[in-house]
Design a protein around this nucleic acid. Structure first.
Lengths: 336, 336
DNA sequence: TTGTATGCGTTATCAT
DNA sequence: ATGATAACGCATACAA
């Protein structure tokens, strides 16, 4: 069933059928009605490939993310797909892992598929070594590139992100001002976002005329779903003589492991140990007591990102950077 | 840059270029080399839309799932996308929610986009009222339909699933044989898989000449990420006079809420209350003690599903139903 | 082994 | 308002 079949059955030319299909105003109402009837009767839908070839677009967006089963990224992908579909776009998902070569190859896969844009979900797509970011620049030369939670200035690259620096600073200040200065900072990523969070933690000390100590800034390099391993990591830090009365974590799962450590060490929460997580994920509500954590407004970010993208594709001029501020969700693992 | 440009620069016809691109053997090695050199030099890639139009395929698979941010579904989507990409296919993701009309409309979106196949992830796509499943049958008339964790017999529909009935039966038997007969069964889905799990629980009692009691089979209808709400639900059951020494749950999150209930009620785990979850998700390792749970071999299922799909698309005859058996992962919330 | 010519199903331009 | 026709870029049957 093609547009020719419809045109014959309706007694018009394919041009008219095409006009009806695309909502062109220059069609006599009666003609339009007739054509629509035939289309309805036959259950005809235009061939997407032919349409794509003619328009040079199939209204498809590529979503690049390291791991769509990660709690945080999964939520992001879910929101983005929903907003895109709502805007009339399809989503091609591509999970890259954290290796640069794979990221490049996935990006090329999407470019070759001729997507209208690529959304890179997560700050891990911007490399520390700036020359390694040329793959983003080259892509941006072809189509708009959207970054979620990354900061990268370049033409045709649009960033939507949360102010992780300030959020983490705020959390640390809350702890310090409640009288706790030996705050163990746990993190598991050195991406742009990861570095920002760390800097936020450090800046809180400086703001209060204190010196952030290196021993209190601990990087966990293991798998990020190995609660047991993280717990052991913390226990070893404590065993090595480090004393701390709060744990501030760059992700909820690290904070959750800290709670486990506390239980194993017979520490009371929050009397003996305060704990703050990050992301306000489902994990935060699974703890006992529930986790004080930072909500970085992921849904708002995703909505804004898609809004910016669609407007850009429609030829509108859009801001290249949009920053949201996070908020501290106070629950049971802190006493302030 | 089109195939014509390449053909001119290489001094051959477009047919030859096409042959080289598609690995046709009938090309003289020198000619092939020359063409490849030009292609390499220009960084030429064939236009995907034109290719799609000619071949009536863009090697794209639609993935339908209710909610890709759900822990379990997210993992499934992640595995599937990876295996598909490995097999040379792209993945269009479409999150439908749990409403039938939305499922239909998403499916149509994919069919109109002319995907080569649709994978429905999760047993919720098969409706209890069989006439409501016509949307699956109609789709199967066009392309192969793959169901993950659902059972649906129809031409061109392929099912890959875990034997939830037996897994749950096994878990219940373990509890019964360790001396616990008042087992509260908690579930939050009445899908095919959900019904199977419940039946497995019931069958365990019958196997031991016991009668499964309705009051011990409790359906939780709230949001499935509201740990607090689930916990309250359990507390109310206990307050209403129901006594139970074990909780068997159809999902880890329900089991996790049971642990929370135990802690609030000062019940020791597993001495006063045994708890078993389902899915072996990350939540199981976040608990204290860690959760005994059922692993339903999701990765194996996904691998098999994609294998079956690709073989089918290649014209091979494949089995329409593949069943894996789950396994009980014994951890700290049970004493057997 | 290689080239020519046609079809794939649209959209869009240009007449009428 | 409508129709004829030329792109769009590739694959492939058929000829050479």
């Amino acid at each position: 069933m093609t547009i020719y079949d419809i045109s014959k059955m309706a007694g018009v030319s394919i041009a008219t059928v095409s006009r009806v299909l695309n909502g062109n105003a220059n069609v006599r109402p009666e003609t339009k009605k007739k054509v629509l009837e035939v289309i309805e009767k036959c259950g005809y839908t235009p061939n997407a490939f032919a349409r794509g070839l003619g328009l040079n677009s199939m209204n498809t967006i590529g979503i690049l993310c390291a791991d769509s089963s990660d709690l945080y990224l999964a939520k992001a992908v879910y929101y983005i797909e929903g907003y895109l579909r709502n805007g009339g776009y399809h989503s091609i998902l591509c999970c890259t892992g954290y290796d640069l070569e794979n990221k490049k190859s996935c990006l090329n896969l999407l470019l070759n598929q001729k997507v209208d844009s690529v959304i890179m979900v997560g700050s891990n797509f911007v490399e520390a070594n700036d020359r390694d970011n040329d793959y983003i620049r080259e892509a941006a030369a072809q189509i708009p590139i959207m970054l979620l939670n990354a900061d990268f200035e370049y033409p045709n690259v649009f960033c939507t992100l949360c102010d992780d620096f300030r959020s983490m600073q705020d959390a640390a200040l809350n702890l310090i001002d409640s009288g706790i200065q030996d705050i163990l900072y746990l993190y598991n990523s050195r991406s742009y976002s990861g570095r920002n969070k760390l800097a936020g933690y450090q800046s809180a000390f400086l703001l209060r005329d204190l010196t952030p100590s290196k021993e209190y800034q601990q990087y966990y390099s293991g798998r990020n779903d190995d609660v047991e391993g993280i717990c052991r990591f913390i226990s070893e830090l404590a065993a090595s003589g480090l004393t701390f009365h709060a744990v501030l974590a760059s992700e909820d799962i690290l904070a959750m492991a800290a709670l486990k450590f506390a239980r194993l060490s017979n520490l009371r929460i929050p009397e003996d140990l305060s704990v703050i997580g990050y992301n306000n994920s489902i994990l935060a509500c699974c703890c006992e007591p529930e986790l004080t954590t930072i909500d970085n407004r992921l849904e708002d970010i995703c909505q804004q990102l898609v809004k910016t993208l669609i407007a850009t594709l429609n030829g509108n001029h859009m801001p290249q950077k949009t920053i949201f501020s996070g908020r501290l969700i106070k629950r049971g693992t802190t006493s302030f």
